[in-house]
C-alpha cells in the first residue's frame, strides 16, 4: 500500500495508505483529507480536485492528458505542479508522493 502525503490547506500533513488502482482523489476523500471537493466524483469535469504535486514527483508521474490540461487552465491558482487528482491513478511506485492542496477549489 503506497503512502501518499497530503498537505491540507492549513498546512496539516496527512499520510494516507492508498490502494493501487484507485485515484489520488479517491484516496484523499476516503481518508477525510480536507481541501478537495471532487464535485463530479472523478470525471474530469469540475476541476475541484485540484492539487499541487511536489516538485520531486512531477516528472515521475504520467503527464496529464490534453482534456485535463484544458481544465487546469481554468483552475483556481494554477501553478507548476498543478494536477487534477482524480486523473492520477495510484501505482506501487508512488510511495511517498506528496501533494499540497489549494486554499480554495473555486
Amino acid at each position: 500500500m503506497p503512502t501518499i502525503i497530503f498537505i491540507e490547506p492549513d498546512g496539516t500533513e496527512k499520510q494516507v495508505g492508498a490502494r493501487v488502482g484507485q485515484t489520488v482523489m479517491e484516496a484523499a476523500v476516503q481518508n477525510g483529507v480536507k481541501g478537495i471537493d471532487a464535485d463530479c466524483g472523478g470525471s474530469c469535469s469540475c476541476a475541484t480536485c485540484h492539487g499541487y504535486v511536489d516538485e520531486a514527483w512531477q516528472e515521475k508521474l504520467e503527464p496529464a492528458d490534453s482534456m485535463e490540461l484544458d481544465m487546469l487552465d481554468f483552475a483556481y491558482q494554477r501553478s507548476e505542479g498543478s494536477r487534477l487528482t482524480c486523473q492520477i491513478v495510484v501505482g506501487e511506485e508512488m510511495d511517498g508522493l506528496m501533494i499540497r492542496l489549494p486554499v480554495s477549489q473555486a
Binding site: 474530469c44 482534456m67 484544458d70 487552465d73
Partner: peptide, 12 residues
C-alpha cells in the same frame, strides 16, 4: 463536446 476550454470559458 470534448472541449473543456469552451465549457470553462462559458462558465466564467
Amino acid at each position: 463536446i470534448n472541449d473543456p476550454k469552451a465549457f470553462m470559458t462559458a462558465k466564467r
